[in-house]
Design a protein around this nucleic acid. Structure first.
Lengths: 262, 262
DNA sequence: AAGTGGTCTAGACCACGCT
DNA sequence: GCGTGGTCTAGACCACTTT
């Protein structure tokens, strides 16, 4: 086996208190940060690292597990370990729900993604009546029956977000909101047509590691957190008319907000 | 060694395609979700799990590594593996920079934390002049010299956030902003006194896994992401007068915003 | 001293991807 | 077929915590 190109990775310090697998992880992290391995580049194989450092394979795998958990590299079975490319980022602007952005027949997601040069897709996963969870019910002034609209958003074939909208049944019933395609301007346009002129939205943002289900649905790599956003829409009568629960792949999003200073 | 209390953990399915360590991780996750292990409770020791499942210790450790990486449990050397308690959460409201909240002599962080029944502390880490990074410079209209104020915030002794404010040197120089304690109402009050009445703030939010340095500074447990917030303050002349770069322990924060619907 | 997790070794067999 | 990573075993020694 050929030795590694000199200089890409260093040697171990046997006098250090730091565990060997952490030293190796440090060196891999450092080499990526310094650009000695570029985006998409293949790291030395486990066997090469075993030879280079003179340690057992489990120690090398332990080190790779660390940098993989940090989201720096991705292992591909049978191929190798590769430096993770940074995916394209979707920016959510603070005026994204402004009325002027409701274009005829096309969702905000579609318009914005195409403007950014991406190929958007939306899966309508499910539309049905439900009893809301206590949290959703509380946000909807104690509603006991809601319409739930579940959907998933993809950019260039990659799932980036899934969302569930909950609407009080008395508001949604008998409107196009119960249809998979609610028509031009989306459900917010339909809410305003049925007399619920929108006043403002409250958004709550959390970040955490994904559940196994979320990892699967968003095809998340190890080391990628999710952003959990809960939005409540209020009409001009201060009634909450929709709760939207959204889980986003954190590496695909930047959220932008504007706050008044008054 | 006594057998485990029956029913807390199940048995392996040898016909399953799912790897043994993943099956074990699934059962531990499930047991926590179902409340069979409550917050702070000690999981069975590695040796007990080895006996219960009839697998090697490395397989058990692999499984524990999975749930540890998800932030569900924390290992304490010499003591055991424990279900992680949920830390108290700090809620950042959308009106947190309103002028009326600038209390005499006390920072917004201090006021709010005490109201929530926590014990707040602020470390002033460093105040100095710097050449800004290209990103900070761009946000400050190309400023070439800035004052950097670095500080760290703790709640009940736990570090939850560290932040660096950058201000154009021509604005900060000769004001109390260069002092560790800038006085009542903080640097925003001082900016307004020196003629830069604040108009609005832009905030950008990202979430990602922490760097080793961030893990250390925030004493983060495995499986806890960080929220990275970059705020730019604008005065009424539309000049950017401050950039604040903040890294928060994601398990300690909920961010709240209000968006207009107009 | 006994029990716990932390690290490491030296193997083994398997599944996947490429040539 | 061969090289890759994925899983698993059966040990070993160490450091930390409690008794």
């Amino acid at each position: 086996m050929a030795p590694l190109p000199s200089g890409t990775l260093g040697t171990l310090d046997p006098t250090s208190d730091r565990a060997v697998f952490r030293q190796i992880a440090d060196q891999i992290r450092d080499a990526i940060a310094k650009g000695r391995f570029t985006e998409g580049a293949k790291l030395p194989s486990e066997a090469e690292l075993v030879e280079h450092y003179g340690v057992s394979r489990m120690t090398v795998r332990n080190a790779l597990g660390v940098v993989q958990g940090e989201g720096l590299v991705r292992a591909e079975h049978g191929k190798g370990v590769f430096v993770r490319p940074r995916p394209p980022v979707r920016r959510l602007a603070s005026d994204r729900f402004a009325r002027r952005h409701r274009e005829a027949g096309r969702s905000a997601f579609t318009v914005e993604a195409e403007a950014a040069g991406s190929r958007p897709e939306v899966d309508s996963l499910e539309i049905r009546e439900e009893r809301p969870s206590p949290d959703v019910s509380a946000r909807l002034d104690g509603a006991r029956r809601v319409l739930a609209r579940r959907r998933r958003y993809l950019l260039d074939g990659r799932p980036v977000e899934f969302a569930t909208s909950y609407l009080p049944l008395d508001i949604a019933q008998g409107t196009p909101i119960t249809e998979p395609n609610p028509g031009p301007g989306g459900i917010y346009a339909r809410l305003e047509e049925s007399g619920h002129t929108l006043d403002h939205f409250d958004e709550e943002i959390r970040a955490r590691m994904p559940s196994p289900h979320e990892i699967k649905a968003l095809e998340l790599a190890p080391g990628v957190p999710v952003i959990h956003l809960i939005r409540t829409a209020f009409d001009t009568a201060a009634r909450p008319v929709e709760v939207c629960d959204t889980v986003m792949a954190a590496d695909a999003y930047v959220l932008a907000y504007q706050l008044p200073a008054h």
